[in-house]
Simulated assay, not measured.
Amino acid sequence: MLKLGIIGTGNIAHQFIQAAQLAGGYLLSAIYSRRLETAIQFALPYGDVELYTELEAFVASDLDVIYLASPNSLHYQQALMILEAGKHLIVEKPAFSNPKEFAHIIEVAANNQVLVLEAARNYHEANFDIIIDFLKDKTIYGASFNFAQYSSRMENLLAGIYDNTFQGKMSGGALVDLGIYEIYAAYRLFGQPKTARYSADLLPTGVDVAGCGQLIYDDFQVSMIVRKNAQSSLANEIYTDQGTLILNHIQGLQSAQFRGLDGNTRTIPLKSLQHLMLEEAQVFETILSKPEEHQDLYTHLLTVAQQVNQTMTLMRQDANIQFEADL
C-alpha cells in the first residue's frame, strides 16, 4: 500500500481520495493545511488521519506519495520540498506555471530518485482507447472541442473580487483550468500538434475568463472553445472522411455517436465510468508501486505532460497572458 499524503483541501482533493480508495492501492495517512480547523473539517470522512499545519513536518513524515492540489502558483515551491524529501509526487493539473519550472522539477525528481506525475485525469480514460480504435480506418479532417463551465467564483468576479483562479499571480485562468483537458484529449487522440494559437477575453488581472484556440496539425486543426463565464451543452465533434464522431465531453467520456455521410447514426459502445478519477489513480498506483517495471509508461506520461505545458505556454503567449511566475 502506498502511504498517501494530501496538500489542498478543496473538492478536487476529496475526489482524488475517493478514487484512491476505490483503486485500493493507497492508504490515506496525512493531510496538510495551513489552518488546523480546515484540516479537521476536511478529514472528517476519513477516520484516523495525521493532520499537519507545518509543511516541513508534513513532507518529512512517513509517506510514500503526496498529492498536491494547492493553488497553481504554489505547486513549484511545494513540489521542490516534496521531491527533496524523497517523496513521490502527484500534482494536480496544471502541474507547473511554465516549461522552465517543469524542467527543473524533473531534474530534482531524478536527482532524488522519485517520480512526478501530473494529474490530468482524462488522458487516462480507457474510453479514449475505444475512440482511437474506431478512428483507425478514417482520415481526420479536424475536430471541435468545447469546455464551457460556469465558475462557482463568477459571483465574486462580477462583484470585482478576483479569486485565485482568476489571477495572474496565482497562474490561473480558463485555459489552464479547463482548456488543458481539451489539449490533453487532442494529444491522446492525435498526438502533439505542430503549433497552437489562442485568442482570449482577458480580465484586469491579466488572465483569461474565456477564449478560442486552435491546435494545428499537418493536415487538420482542432478548434477549442474555453469558458468559465458560461455554461454550454455543445457536443465535441471529430470530423472524418466517413462522417462525424460526436462525444459527450472530452473528460468523463460516456457516450459517442457516429453520423455517417449516408445519414445513418450508430452508437459506439463505451465502458461505464465508476469515478472520474479512478482510472488515473489506478495508473499512478501501478507506476508508483513498481516503477522499475513501468519506466516506459512513466517516461511517456512525463513527456506528454511537458509537451502539454509547452503548448499551453505558447497559447498564453499568443493571447498575451503572463503569469507572475514567468517573470
Rank of each mutant, 00 (worst) to 15 (best):
M1C: 04
G8A: 08
L27F: 10
S29W: 03
A43R: 11
Y46N: 13
G47M: 08
G47T: 13
V49G: 07
E50S: 12
E54R: 14
V59H: 05
V59S: 05
D62E: 12
L63H: 06
D64H: 10
A69R: 08
A69P: 00
S70P: 04
P71V: 02
N72A: 12
S73L: 01
L74K: 14
Y76D: 06
Q77M: 05
Q78S: 10
A85I: 04
L89G: 02
I90M: 13
E92G: 09
E101A: 03
A109M: 04
N112P: 01
Q113H: 14
L115S: 15
L115N: 14
Y123A: 10
I131E: 05
D133G: 06
L135D: 08
T139E: 12
Y141Q: 15
G142C: 07
S144A: 15
F145H: 13
Q149D: 12
S151Q: 11
G160A: 10
T165S: 15
F166E: 07
Q167N: 14
V176N: 05
L178Y: 11
E182W: 00
I183D: 06
R188S: 06
R188C: 01
F190W: 09
G191Y: 08
R197W: 01
S199L: 08
L202C: 10
P204G: 07
P204A: 06
P204T: 12
V209R: 12
C212A: 09
C212M: 06
D218T: 15
F220C: 07
Q221T: 10
R227I: 02
R227Q: 09
K228P: 00
N229W: 02
A230F: 01
Q231E: 13
A235V: 05
E237Y: 03
T240F: 04
D241F: 03
G243R: 11
L247R: 04
I250T: 15
L253M: 10
S255P: 00
F258I: 11
G263N: 09
T265M: 06
P269I: 08
P269V: 14
L273W: 02
H275T: 13
H275E: 15
L276I: 11
E279W: 03
A281K: 08
Q282I: 02
E285F: 06
I287H: 06
D296S: 15
L302M: 08
V304H: 02
Q307V: 06
A325P: 00
L327E: 11
